[in-house]
Design a protein around this nucleic acid. Structure first.
Lengths: 334, 334
DNA sequence: ATGAAAGCGCTAACAT
DNA sequence: ATGTTAGCGCTTTCAT
């Protein structure tokens, strides 16, 4: 049941296979007559071009590869929207491979994409070690998304998490809060940037003495546990900035369970603006990342290398934005 | 900066390119000496096989394609785990393309996968029209996942949603509930099966007269609105079965907001066992679908066609299972 | 055990 | 405007 080829079309239309190729690629210099004959034959044979053959002949695949470490993370669903839209406009298709958040599987996925001769590779939050990533980048332009690359040797797109954390603090300070605690993300991705953004902003507002970081781990249970520690401690904060939405939700529930009203008694801010934050009964004030833009920026970096011939690594830093919900309000009067 | 080929390796190792090919594919009938020379040269040149060339020559890509209509739906993240694991064991790679839940983009994604000569195609909840799907299936084995195909002409993997809904009802009846209402999913995917599963189960328990279906739409707001209508109505139910977790959550919040205790006064069951259901403060009793198994079953169907030569369409129906949470309890005494 | 040669399905000069 | 020819990088007989 092998598929028909342009040779079959050529035979049926009574022309040469190069003419078929020309017609199929929409060349203007073919007679209306042969064009029709070719298209008709192709239709009748249910012809489908063979991308492997075309790619081999053209020595380009017109494909961008995306290695998604974790398909469960819907953050990257939006990022991919941006990638797909932008690359389609440039005549590229986007193909994904997943790494199931395991180094070995990520490496395999990348290998497959490289062997397919994708013309650019976007790595979404890879767990893979930097040397392996750099090795891949010798074969194809690589862009790292949402993973701070210490070595400035790989193109990277990220958001300014220090600024994001600062925006959260600024918002709370404007509402009159002075005792603002932070439930951090432990050793998780971006946690240290968010933590130091919080600390720096507190100092900037001359509230350094009030700064209080409690350990979290980006989980719901972690957020709840952190609240327990915060409330049992000495000076109870009037506001809490959690390092992500999930731990904010855990904190929210723990607060409500203890009869603490949010935002009347304690204001709460999360990070990431996940679908969780947008649930009706949660409606969390949080920090939003421009996901689609992250995706289109990543493609932009690839294009600069492919078409523009750029060779030096670049880092694109996008700005997060505060999203208001119902979990923040003016600080209670003492 | 073109990549090295086996010809380059052959030159450097001082052998023919056929020998290089043999070595690279691990043939046993090459001398240890040439094997070493070839591998060394490949290493030194940082050689990467060209999958397009290999695929063209072998006339097979060893790739399965997956068209994911909606990357936001984490349901398919688990399904993909199953697909990936199973197909890897058979020597296939899995490549994804997304359709952004738009027919036109889905068609494009499928086209790309077909032109790449993927050897099997799994369509995850496509919006695409059946004729288009059938057309694709003329070029490559196609399996439909989680979309009931009326025409039994395309291989399909699905779960028994009628049975799932029945399991929810059975559970509630066992707890002594008799007035059980259903918030349906309107015209959404699977909604009618879940609805009729509910109705049939009610009748089976001789509770047909108590059956009450209120319109929902799989959304949080829809669930909340449905609760409003239910409580304002006449005979208040003691249990509610919502067609999915999100609308169950909407219902839960609406109930709590009106001071109705769950599960003391009203029990609540959802469907899908999403991450939402597993949030600590929700802990919803719900119906779980065997996601990984759905994925591996889909691959199995492809393999039957590719290796086993099956030609007749098959439909695999898997069983959902009840997952107990804290939202269901014995019916209150009248 | 190794090499020569043909061919996979297509594109891309180059002729005519 | 159309056809001829030579690859693209690899696999695969078929010789030797």
């Amino acid at each position: 049941v092998s598929q028909p080829t342009i040779v079959d079309i050529a035979a049926r239309a009574g022309v040469s296979k190069s003419l078929v190729s020309l017609v199929l690629r929409g060349s203007p210099k073919v007679s209306e007559e042969s064009r029709r004959a070719v298209l008709r034959a192709a239709e009748e044979l249910d012809y489908r071009p063979n991308a492997m053959a075309r790619g081999l002949a053209q020595r380009r695949s017109s494909i961008f590869g995306v290695m998604l470490s974790d398909l469960h993370n819907t953050f990257f669903a939006d990022v991919l929207d941006g990638i797909d839209a932008r690359s389609r406009r440039e005549g590229f298709r986007t193909l994904l491979a997943t790494g199931h958040r395991k180094q070995s599987l990520e490496a395999e996925a990348i290998k497959a994409l490289v062997e397919l001769r994708t013309e650019g590779l976007i790595l979404a939050a890879p767990r893979l070690s930097m040397p392996k990533i750099i090795e891949a980048s010798r074969a194809v332009p690589v862009v790292l998304v949402s993973r701070p690359a210490r070595e400035a040797v790989i193109d990277t797109v990220m958001t300014d998490e220090v600024a994001g954390a600062a925006a959260a603090v600024d918002h709370l300070v404007e509402l009159g809060h002075r005792r603002i605690a932070h439930i951090d993300g432990g050793a998780g991705a971006g946690a240290s940037a968010r933590r130091s953004g919080y600390l720096r902003a507190m100092e900037r507002h001359a509230l350094g003495a009030n700064a209080q970081v409690v350990r979290g781990d980006y989980t719901e249970a972690g957020g709840a546990a952190a609240v327990a520690r915060l409330l049992d401690g000495g000076a109870r904060p009037t506001a809490i900035f959690a390092a992500n939405d999930l731990s904010a939700l855990g904190a929210l529930n723990a607060l409500l369970q203890r009869g603490v009203r949010v935002p009347d008694e304690i204001s709460l801010v999360g990070y990431d603006n996940t679908s969780l934050a947008r649930l009706a009964h949660v409606d969390l004030t949080t920090i939003d990342q421009p996901r689609r833009e992250i995706g289109s920026a990543a493609v932009e970096l690839l294009l600069e290398r492919i078409n523009g011939g750029r060779r030096k690594p670049r880092r694109v830093v996008l700005s997060p934005a505060l999203v208001l919900g119902r979990t923040t309000a003016e600080a209670p009067q003492p």
